[in-house]
């Protein structure tokens, strides 16, 4: 059904059902960690996660009703942000660590073996601390993640597509407001919380841009074997930004 036909509760339920499973690296990363080993593991995971992300996007009510090119465009623009918000969510109960997968977690020190990673790690750890302080709920998290996808690009193929997308975003915003409304907050605290949650998204966009530049740099230096889908998504990003 179209998201407008769903209540906010039903939409949240659909977003919860769309959540991807835990994705395992399935390889033991032997110590000592090196730049090559860490980059290989992280790009391997990112590539696997991309496939699950496409399944996730297709389950978001209304997404597949957008034109195919628009679906492609939105996913290309937001894929690293979506992966990063997932990483932050998984890491929220593990202060000082980033949980890349159930079988791969790295501390700041372990991540520092990759050149240029510390800055990105620190930004991700800071965003995770903020999410911890805000006590983000699962219902709010699924809405924010859908918003990242739907708000990743405003330039769609037609004005019809753009209005479809805006209606989708409105439905997800209503769902987020309704999730916040389930808490014991006063009205004033509720809209402050809404603002705080939405402000997180600009930080995530910023880290994602840093991460994209880093990955591009690593590719240029032949530091990592890039998997086909990951390479396609990275190239699309470079193409759009140039």
């Amino acid at each position: 059904p179209q998201p407008s036909a769903l209540t906010s509760e039903q939409l949240i339920e659909r977003l919860m059902e769309a959540e991807p499973p835990g994705i395992y690296l399935m390889k033991d990363m032997k110590k000592p960690l090196t730049e090559a080993k860490v980059m290989m593991s992280l790009t391997n995971l990112a590539d696997k996660e991309l496939v699950h992300m496409i399944t996730w996007a297709k389950k978001i009510p209304g997404f597949v009703e957008l034109g195919l090119l628009d679906q492609v465009h939105l996913l290309e623009c937001c894929w690293l942000e979506v992966q990063m918000v997932g990483l932050i969510w998984r890491s929220v109960d593990h202060p000082g660590k980033l949980i890349f997968s159930p079988d791969l977690s790295l501390s700041r020190e372990e991540g520092s073996c990759v050149q240029g990673f510390v800055e990105i790690f620190d930004m991700l750890l800071a965003a995770t601390s903020r999410v911890r302080e805000l006590k983000l709920q699962r219902e709010e998290y699924v809405c924010l993640k859908a918003m990242i996808l739907l708000n990743s690009n405003m330039c769609l193929s037609s004005s019809e597509s753009s209005s479809k997308l805006l209606r989708l975003l409105d439905a997800v915003t209503d769902a987020l407001v309704s999730a916040i409304g389930k808490t014991v907050l006063t009205f004033r605290q509720q809209y402050t919380r809404l603002a705080h949650l939405l402000m997180l998204l600009s930080h995530i966009r910023h880290v994602s841009n840093k991460g994209m530049d880093h990955l591009h740099c690593m590719k240029m230096k032949n530091m990592v074997p890039l998997y086909d889908l990951l390479l396609e998504m990275l190239d699309a990003h470079i193409m759009h930004s140039s």
Partner: peptide, 24 residues
Amino acid sequence: TSLKEKHKILHQLLQNSTSPVDLA
């Protein structure tokens, strides 16, 4: 190169009715 050729895998995964996870 057409946009479709540049984004071959993503297009295929989005277009296919089978779950992309099963395809992969």
